[in-house]
Design a protein around this nucleic acid. Structure first.
Length: 495
RNA sequence: GGCCCGGUGGUCAAGCGGUUAAGACUCCGCCCUUUCACGGCGGCAACACGGGUUCGAGUCCCGUCCGGGUCACCA
């Protein structure tokens, strides 16, 4: 059966041209790790920076690794991160479908085309089992490579199982160009005749990727640097078809430490995990963007970028060649910066659920508590343990009342507290200014520095050495009645 | 092991032949202060090593060492 050349012409005709087109092409394995997210981000940034098109393609050619709900996780994550795609399985587009298993027929046709062109061949060898010990595996000379084409075709037609392999030249070298790494040359004899079409009829990643990237008009192929060593084979594929080679952008990995990539297996956090740990999406994206890319020139010292600003500033020049270690401390710092930069109302909104985890009493104002927290937490998950004293006074040690720096002793505390209780109980109102001014006035009247009075009041009110906010704020939130009660309790402790 | 790639403070990094080698995180001091934070100021700390090339090398070349990737009918 002859190949229908019109099919290929029609496919070619559909390819959009003239604009930058990039694609994020995850396989749905149920997990968005940080390196993946960063690749998606860079891919999106390249498209947006150029006013181009960003495409989502699902690479599900490995039927044994399908994970339920994995595709949904990808959609959800991209949406949450605001990495919007212009074309994809859910929104369609000019080169649909965008799911590889739905393109299955296409790959077979192109593989046959490549066989005709002499750059691929049918292989009937038994599947080799012993590849596990990847030490020194050599497939050796494949007899199928030199099979007579007509004969091979006859065996295929007779229903004999086969795979299609790429026919790599035995001699010479192949040089390809990468936008980050520059020109890379390898000897062809180090390249193997990789499988293009598997025995089950589905394409391998290596083949599907090349065919789809071409047919979808992808101009910049962004992927992890683990594909760098297969890139010459992809180049040979493009050339075999007579296609234009896209710009390769191979990104160095995100590492857990100097010798290990971030991985699920080692319990390294995924995007979802980080969210659950109290990190903000914006902070994660900002941090991750700078792990492997940095602005140059004028912007070289800048670290805080919104997505829009990143899209504006992004360039391939700033991409790093070496692996980068993921540093939770620095992400935490970015998160703290984002938290502090939020409008107070916005912060109160996101903080409230965390506050309510330990402050159940509805009489206590969450927004007012949030105000104390904004400069004092780096992650939202820091919140609950910081505000636990509002609901219930901890059973604290009386020695907390002694503090050298504040010139506070057990004796002075007793005196300060009894003066404060009397005064606070009779304040004309319970406004923060009133509490503050009266307490400050009292300290002045007693001839002590503010801290000497404020320290025991805060300790008695909170029962903790370290608290968000000072005596005035805490008393105000607690309310007069509860404040007076706690101060009296403190007094009892001291006597 | 073969092939490919990388190597500036503990971490992320700027640097593209001439700089006192930026900046950020971490850590440590000091100031501010009603505890803690925030904020401000200051400090510790780096060009893996050896050869070249050059008047001059973190920057260019070679070698060594170290690290990573890859060598699947996985992606």
């Amino acid at each position: 059966m002859a190949l229908d050349m019109r099919y290929f012409e029609e496919m070619e005709a559909k390819i959009p041209r003239g604009k930058v087109r990039t694609r994020f092409a995850p396989s749905p394995t149920g997990y968005m790790h940080v390196g993946n997210l960063r690749t998606a981000l860079y891919t999106w940034l390249i498209a947006r920076n150029a006013g181009g098109t960003f495409i989502l393609r699902i690479e599900d050619t490995d039927q044994t690794r399908q994970v339920e709900g994995a595709t949904e996780l990808i959609y959800r994550t991209l949406a949450e991160c605001k990495l919007d795609h212009d074309e994809g399985p859910d929104v369609g587009g000019p080169v649909a479908p965008y799911i590889q298993t739905q393109r299955r027929d296409t790959y077979g046709k192109y593989a046959r085309l490549l066989v005709e062109k002499g750059h691929a061949y049918y292989c009937f060898c038994e599947k080799t089992e012993s590849e596990e010990d990847a030490g020194d595996f050599d497939r050796g000379e494949d007899p199928c490579r030199e099979l007579d084409p007509a004969q091979a075709q006859a065996r295929v037609d007779a229903g004999e199982p086969y795979v299609i392999r790429q026919k790599i030249p035995r001699e010479g070298t192949t040089t390809f160009h990468d936008a980050i790494f520059g020109d890379i040359t390898v000897e062809n004899k180090t390249l193997d005749d990789q499988v293009l079409i598997k025995r089950d009829g589905l394409p391998t990643y290596n083949f599907a990727n090349v065919v789809d990237d071409h047919l979808m008009g992808i101009t910049h192929v962004v992927r992890g640097s683990e594909y760098l060593s297969s890139a010459p084979k992809y180049d040979l594929l493009y050339r075999g078809f007579g296609w234009e080679v896209p710009t390769y952008v191979h990104c160095s990995p995100v590492m857990r430490d100097a010798q290990h990539k971030m991985s699920k297996r080692h319990g390294d956090p995924s995007y979802e995990d980080l969210k659950a740990q109290g990190f903000l999406t914006e902070a994660i994206l900002n941090y991750v963007a700078l792990l492997g890319w940095s602005p140059r020139g004028e912007l070289a010292e800048r670290e805080i970028f919104s997505l829009e600003e990143l899209a504006q500033a992004f360039d391939l020049e700033g991409m790093s060649k070496s692996p980068a270690i993921f540093d939770l401390d620095k992400l935490t710092h970015f998160n703290a910066l984002y938290l502090r930069a939020m409008a107070p109302e916005e912060f109160a909104r996101v903080a409230e659920p965390y506050i309510r985890q330990s402050v159940k009493n509805p009489a206590l104002d969450a927004a007012e508590i949030a105000a104390l927290l904004q400069a004092r937490c780096e992650k939202l998950t820091d919140i609950p343990e910081k505000v636990d004293f509002f609901d219930a006074l901890p059973d604290y040690d009386v020695n907390l009342f002694a503090n050298k720096k504040s010139k506070s002793t057990l004796d002075s505390s007793k005196e300060m507290l009894s003066a404060a209780v009397g005064m606070l109980a009779n304040l004309p109102n319970w406004k923060p200014e009133m509490i503050h001014d009266s307490l400050a006035g009292l300290a002045e009247g007693l001839g002590v520095k503010n801290a000497t009075l404020m320290w025991p009041v805060r300790i008695a009110a909170a029962g903790k050495a370290v608290t968000p906010g000072g005596a005035v704020e805490i008393c105000h939130i607690l309310g007069r009645e509860e404040t007076v009660r706690r101060l009296k309790l403190g007094l009892e402790k001291l006597s």
